[in-house]
């Protein structure tokens, strides 16, 4: 892999909270355009890892670069080059869908003209054009999640971090969301996604599975199944989580 083909690279990345090590010497390389799945039991360190890569949390040790920028020194550049949809995505309930998009555009310092020129295409892409003037509080979680993705894509970042985007979402809406993830990846964007749905894990190009802060496995879903001698990722996951 040539260096300029790499979207995210970490070397022995570590995060400690006091004496507790939440992320323990994790080294990964994510290629541009990849859909990279990040799995692990509750508390394995997925969100902590993502927050470090988004420049929101300072690592305790190790190296990491995102879009070619160093997480220690260039977190402002990183923020401009990534979209982040957090586990508890924060939308404003008392704003309409349109207003939420404008608000996020403002955070990223986009001009009114740019926001307006992108908004229509974006709302169309995430399937919310028809209800753009609805109050966010009146739309179901499945739609909020699409709006959150739309907001994360507004400044057209090359790398997107999605932390449990489909939790609490019904099977049909989840499938629709993954169609969106695929479309976004086909535009050349890199997607870093966590999920507790094992069928979704199968849709990722490559998967990493963490346990207690450590990276235990990293490969394509097919190779992981072969390596662990299992029929599906669910079984691979159970074996890794229960292993010592």
């Amino acid at each position: 892999m040539s260096e300029n083909n790499i979207a995210v690279k970490t070397e022995l990345l570590t995060k400690k909270f006091g004496k507790f090590t939440a992320v323990d010497q994790v080294s990964i390389e994510v290629e541009k355009g990849e859909i990279f799945g990040f799995l692990g039991a509750n508390g394995a360190g997925k969100t902590t890892m993502i927050r470090m890569l988004c420049g929101l949390l300072k690592p305790s040790d190790g190296k990491a670069s995102v879009a070619g920028y160093d997480v220690y020194k260039q977190s402002e550049n990183i923020k401009k080059n990534i979209g982040y949809m957090s586990q508890k995505f924060s939308l404003y309930d008392d704003l309409t869908i349109n207003e939420n998009i404008e608000f996020y555009g403002g955070i990223y310092g986009l001009s009114k003209e740019i926001i307006n020129s992108r908004r229509e295409k974006l709302l169309d892409q995430v399937g919310l054009s028809d209800i753009a003037n609805t109050m966010t509080r009146d739309i179901p979680v499945g739609f909020k999640q699409r709006l959150a993705l739309g907001s994360a894509l507004l400044h057209d970042p090359p790398i997107i971090f999605l932390d449990e985007p489909t939790s609490g979402v019904d099977p049909e809406a989840r499938r629709g969301f993954w169609d969106l993830i695929y479309q976004t990846s086909e535009e050349g964007k890199t997607i870093f996604v966590t999920t507790h749905f094992m069928d979704e894990a199968e849709y990722c190009h490559r998967l990493s599975i963490m346990r207690d802060g450590k990276l235990i496995a990293l490969d394509t879903p097919g190779k992981l199944k072969a390596q662990y001698g299992k029929d599906n990722i669910q079984e691979v996951f159970v074996e890794i989580v229960n292993g010592e």
Partner: peptide, 11 residues
């Protein structure tokens, strides 16, 4: 929705 965000083993 008791198992919102709960991992598959714990579910």
């Amino acid at each position: 929705e008791p198992t919102f965000g709960v991992d598959p083993v714990s579910r």
